[in-house]
Amino acid sequence: MKKLFMRADFIVILTVIILSILLFIPNLFNNSTLTAQIYVDGEVVEEINLQEVEKSYTLTPKNGTKITVEKGKICFSDAHCKDELCIKSGWLSKKGQTAACLPERVVVSIKGTDKTDMMTY
């Protein structure tokens, strides 16, 4: 019968602990991917990693509709629609948040979900 504990066992424990630390490292970087998607007429025309944005800038995915992008957030800044609900939605900065300019058929949404699979409103 084998012994309860041998020198090699230390190596096993050490290896597992090191492996566990290695798997943990990506977690420190992971939270910094916030991907925003811009849809025009139902198709994705632009994907932006909001955390990698250094300087704020503006996009015009469709004539008359302006979208402003800053580090960690995105919003509608101008639209030709009458109600301007898209602009009133304000800044989107969390996963799953969406704003839409219905008359222009432009949708901005941040990929992924925090704790919810779908929102009811």
């Binding site: 084998k2 012994k3 309860l4 504990f5 041998m6 020198r7 090699a8 066992d9 096993v12 424990i13």
Partner: peptide
């Protein structure tokens, strides 16, 4: 294999 029961137990659990 020169492992003790604890080492084997850990590998199996892993």
């Amino acid at each position: 294999i020169n492992l003790g029961y604890i080492g084997i137990g850990i590998i199996c659990a892993v």
